[in-house]
Amino acid sequence: GIPATNLSRVAGLEKQLAIELKVKQGAENMIQTYSNGSTKDRKLLLTAQQMLQDSKTKIDIIRMQLRRALQ
């Protein structure tokens, strides 16, 4: 079985993952909103794209940590 310490770690990672998935969803929504907007929305679009990139990276890292914890 999986050690108890790993189980609480997994629960924490799953919570983090859920949050990051919401951030990713929000960033994707912002990108959709701003991509057909005016030029003043360009900065917001770039910010949203950066957020999305960061979020995807975090999600990958969390998933990797989850896999390790579940081994």
Rank of each mutant, 00 (worst) to 15 (best):
Q53H: 09
G26Y: 14
R68M: 13
T47Y: 14
Q65C: 09
I59S: 01
I62S: 00
I31N: 01
N29D: 13
I31A: 02
M51P: 00
V23R: 15
A48I: 04
T39W: 06
Q65F: 05
T57L: 12
D60P: 01
K56H: 04
L52Q: 01
T5H: 14
A18Y: 07
L46A: 11
T33R: 15
V23I: 12
A48R: 00
Q32D: 10
L70W: 05
E28F: 04
M51E: 04
A4S: 06
M51W: 04
T57E: 14
Q32K: 14
D60I: 14
K15N: 06
N36Q: 12
R9K: 11
L70F: 05
K43S: 11
K43I: 12
Q25L: 08
A48H: 03
L66H: 01
Q50D: 04
R9F: 11
T39A: 10
S55H: 01
S35M: 14
K24Y: 14
A11P: 04
I19V: 06
A4M: 03
I62V: 02
Q49F: 11
R67A: 13
V10K: 03
A11Q: 09
M64H: 08
N29C: 15
I62L: 11
N36L: 04
L7T: 08
K58L: 04
G26A: 14
Y34C: 09
L70M: 08
R67K: 08
I19A: 11
M51R: 05
K40W: 05
I59A: 02
K56D: 05
T57K: 09
K56E: 10
L70T: 05
D41S: 04
K15F: 07
Q50K: 11
S38Q: 09
K24D: 00
Q65S: 03
L46P: 02
Q53F: 07
Q32S: 09
T5C: 15
Q32Y: 10
L66C: 02
I2A: 12
K24G: 01
L7F: 02
Q25I: 07
G1S: 10
I31T: 01
K22R: 10
T39R: 06
K56C: 13
M51L: 11
I19H: 13
D60Y: 14
G26E: 15
I31P: 00
V23K: 13
K40I: 09
T39E: 12
T39D: 10
R68I: 14
T57H: 13
I19S: 07
E14G: 04
S55A: 13
L21Q: 05
I19E: 12
D54K: 09
I2K: 11
L46M: 09
S35G: 07
A18K: 08
P3S: 06
S38E: 13
L52K: 02
I31M: 04
V23F: 08
I62G: 00
L17W: 02
I61M: 12
I59Y: 01
I19M: 11
E14I: 15
Q49A: 04
L46T: 04
L44G: 06
L13F: 03
G37S: 09
V10C: 12
A4L: 02
